[in-house]
Design a protein around this nucleic acid. Structure first.
Lengths: 214, 214
DNA sequence: AATTGTGAAATTGTTCACAGCA
DNA sequence: TGCTGTGAACAATTTCACAATT
């Protein structure tokens, strides 16, 4: 894989995720090649954008023909780093945490939940899909010498900063946070937020400003 | 409220969501006013961005002093349309659907789940937080004359398009989709996607390209 | 003939810098 | 003096348009 020289934008990466899913679908539909035009149409993007996004990473297409579906899918998997499996720990098995343990899409893309933590005595020791829930107090020691690479935080906002501090102390460099709060982490730690209320708020805004757009 | 003349960008709206949560927190910490500088620092943004975002909707601050916390919070709630309650229906009470029914953040912001649908016979008729699950086959008739304004889709990708077609047929204009697939809706329907795997993929990409950034 | 890959142009979004006000 | 509100400058992203290739 050619290492990109310039900084790749967040939106380009997000669209790679979209292409990846679209290409999987195209493969199931037995397409062998796909043009940027057709791919863009399916995902409501522009052909130029598809081509430019991909061009940051190399030349994967054939002029006059388009892109080879399976090959491009694999190339994107390689770029995103999902052509392998990742060891994930989950902190918090409440509503959202439990849902994530069974979320098929994570497994399908190689994100394997291998450890679960909670601070609720009734949950510690219980079994979730074959994993015994550990005490959240043991996060630092349990993670420090583990092979865990990514931690998903699904605890209430009030305790999220405390938990994330422990996770960072354990040397984890990638965190996905579901608590609706802005967590502080050192510069060398990657933190992404997933706030499910935000998209609902966007819909609410859209509905309220509907007439303005007509 | 002054109606904005120009098109407000998606990122501005998302930041309004962020300001809203930050202001709630500041109110709990008994702040009366907050400067763009301090607010930006807390949320890792720039002061100019905070001021510009807010300026699209009016002048809410006082020069030399900053913004009144509670007043600005309420103003933003008004802009986002979350100073009221919204009637929401949920389709699919699997892993994610069940988590959403109990998700506090939705309720706190006025998103009230009033109807639940599923196509699994074992789930139809069962009770989730006081709501009896209806048959997904009845979506069109049950939604058409209801007061439901927003529909959340948490069904497997394979059936999501079918479901969304029914939802649109019932006259719903705002849909939040959790299925990792690009759904087709008419132009006058607002559709937002929440794809939880995408942020994990972003982390995966970041970890893979880590050395490149040092 | 069709479609990629890509500089250049256009557009959109962010930051600067300062006038204006409390 | 301190901080907002905002036009102008700048930066990033998207789209255009076309040469290159199969």
């Amino acid at each position: 894989m050619v290492k990109p020289q310039l900084r790749i934008s967040e939106s380009t990466i997000h669209r790679l995720s979209i292409y990846y899913r679209a290409l999987n679908r195209l493969e199931r539909e037995n397409y062998e090649t796909i043009s940027s035009k057709e791919l863009a149409k399916r995902e409501k993007l522009t052909p130029a954008q598809v081509r430019k996004d991909l061009s940051f990473f190399g030349s994967f297409g054939t002029r006059g023909l388009g892109y080879p579906v399976t090959e491009l899918r694999d190339k994107i998997a390689e770029i995103l780093g999902i052509n392998r499996s990742w060891s994930v720990a989950l902190v918090g098995v409440g509503n959202i945490g439990s849902a994530l343990v069974s979320y098929k899409e994570f497994q399908k893309q190689g994100f394997r939940i291998r450890k679960i933590f909670d601070n609720d005595q009734r949950k510690i020791g219980s079994n979730h899909k074959g994993i015994i829930v550990s005490d959240a107090d043991d996060i630092v020691t349990e993670l420090r010498d583990s092979k865990i690479e990514i931690v998903v935080i699904a605890v209430p906002s009030l305790v999220a900063q405390m938990i994330v501090d422990d996770v960072v102390r354990a040397g984890i460099k990638a965190i996905l946070n579901f608590a609706p709060i802005n967590l502080k982490v050192p510069d060398d730690v990657y933190l992404r937020n997933e706030n499910m209320a935000m998209e609902l708020e966007y819909l609410s805004f859209s509905l309220c400003n509907d007439e303005a757009q007509l």
